[in-house]
Amino acid sequence: MIPIAYWRNRKLYTRLIGSRCKKCGAEYYPPVKVCKKCGSTEIEEKEMLKTGTIVSFTKLTEPPVDFKDYAPIYLAMIRLDNGILVLGQLADAESEEIKIGARVMATIRKWTEDGQSGIIYYGYKFKII
């Protein structure tokens, strides 16, 4: 990861800050500049709900290089309770409890780190509740 890009997006990664259209109320994550539904540019920051349901998931036994030491990792599509679809890792997940329809809650975990001397990248992951 790139420290400056992470810093710019830290609210997205740690607080799930997306956006909401002031005109029609549509919500987005990741945030948008223009509403895809009504075309309005009157957009405000909106923190997403932190609870949701697993819609789909996969197990990565050979994840990308930044996550290599943590294999296997589970990636899931989560339908948040405000309707938004988010992709995220599952934390503390035992394979037998990972199911479509399982309830999850967002928490913060270490995503990866730039070696021993670099930045630690924290961000959301989902825990099965």
């Binding site: 934390a91 995503w111 992951k125």
Partner: peptide, 8 residues
């Protein structure tokens, strides 16, 4: 766990 520390 591997992805936890004092901060998380």
């Amino acid at each position: 766990s591997y992805d936890e520390d004092a901060l998380t």
